[in-house]
Every structure is written in structure tokens, then in C-alpha cells.
Design a protein around this nucleic acid. Structure first.
Lengths: 100, 100
DNA sequence: GCGCTATATCGCGATATCTCGATATATGGA
DNA sequence: TCCATATATCGAGATATCGCGATATAGCGC
């Protein structure tokens, strides 16, 4: 867990908002039937919700992933991103312990 | 409390380290006798400890102040900076509530 | 193979941050 | 007043981030 990379990833309102949206699957359109059992949300849904461009969201999701804050899984043509609760919790804990 | 400005201020290892050092006055040389009763640490001590330039530290302390994370008080030629515990706590709390 | 869809990567101009040295300002003392 | 000290501000080059459109890649179905 690289606290520096994590804070850097969090230092952007759109990326923070994505993490917040990902807390609740119902912030996005329902999954396709064939994806019903998969965790996470595909890039397209996140892009649509955010209003940012596809390339921007892809880059942002990769930044969040690089910081460990999300996990990704490829299924066919889709990449599903979901929160990495452990790393998110660790990051917030470390920040609090350091600064508080 | 502007969470965006706060995270931005925290998105720098040197500024985070300064906040950590400021938790304990003994991280710095003892205050001059005439300042013994004042809260906070002068810019020069912080500069010395950090190894960064005087102008950089002055700018950094101003950024931390702009984010509300520190308070400053001028006494004669010296500016004393100290942590703003309330805002630091609020910031960490808001971050946790939003993201956790 | 071809075409379609989903995602990733590239290249870019705009803007922000980093950190510095030089300079300005403020204060206190001789 | 003049000088020394402490801090703030200015200006700049280097680097990073932002967000885009264009293009590349990967997987699926025919």
C-alpha cells in the first residue's frame, strides 16, 4: 500500500466520486443477464455516469487500480472494476494514524 | 472546510511530514525564551528540519493555512504555525465517511 | 477473415504543482 | 536612520496532471 500513490489517486474529485458510486451497485444501470453474477461495474457504465470521455475514465480507473483502491477483472470484452475495501480502509487508517 | 483544497494540500509528502512533525513541539529546537509561552513553531525551524528552501516552506505553510490545516500567528519578526486539530480531524472524518 | 463492441493506449495542448533563487516586506535593535 | 533577521512574494524552468480525440488492441459472432 503506497500512501503517496493512493493520496495522489484521491486528489481528484471525479476519481473520488467514482469510488463513492462504486459503494452501491444500484448507482449504475443493471448488469446484463450474463454478467449478473459478476462483481464490479464495467467501464462504459462508469463513463456514462461521470460524463467524462471514455479515454479519461479508462485512465482514471487505471490510476485507481495502480493505487490499489480498486480491483479489476476482465470478462470477455468487458473490464469490471470494484472497490478494494481492504486497501481503501488501510489507506484511510494510515492517513488518520499519521496525521491525527 | 474545503475537502478538495485539503486533499490537495495533503498531496505532498513534505507537507504531510510537516503536519506530523507539528504534532510534537520536541521535533524542533527549543523555543527562544521570549517565545516560551507561544504555541506553534517558527518558519525557520520547519525549514531547517525539512531541508527545503525558505521560500518553499513559506509557500507550503501558506498552502496548509489556505486549506485550514494549520493556524498562524505573527509575533514580531516570527510567524508561528501550529496544527488546526479541528480541521484536520474534520477532514479525515469527511474523507472516511465519503469513501469508507 | 471481417465487422462490431468494449477497453486501453497514444499524443497533445492547457493548466497546475514543484522547488528554487532573487527580491520585497516587516520588525526589532543599535 | 541604518542594518540585520525573519518571512513573504515574485518569476521561472522542470515536471506532473487534466481531459480530450484519435488510434490501437482484444474479444466476440458471423
Amino acid at each position: 500500500m503506497d500512501i503517496d500513490k493512493a493520496i495522489s489517486a484521491l486528489n481528484n474529485p471525479a476519481r473520488r466520486q467514482i469510488l463513492i458510486w462504486l459503494k452501491d451497485r444500484s448507482n449504475f444501470p443493471p448488469a446484463l443477464p450474463e454478467h449478473a453474477d459478476l462483481a464490479g461495474v464495467c467501464v462504459g457504465y462508469i463513463q456514462e455516469k461521470s460524463g467524462l470521455s471514455q479515454s479519461t475514465i479508462s485512465t482514471y480507473m487505471n490510476a485507481l487500480k495502480g493505487a490499489g483502491l480498486v480491483l479489476s477483472e476482465r470478462h470477455g470484452q468487458w473490464t469490471f472494476y470494484r472497490r478494494n475495501e481492504e486497501v481503501i480502509a488501510q489507506t484511510l487508517k494510515k492517513l488518520s494514524e499519521d496525521l491525527q
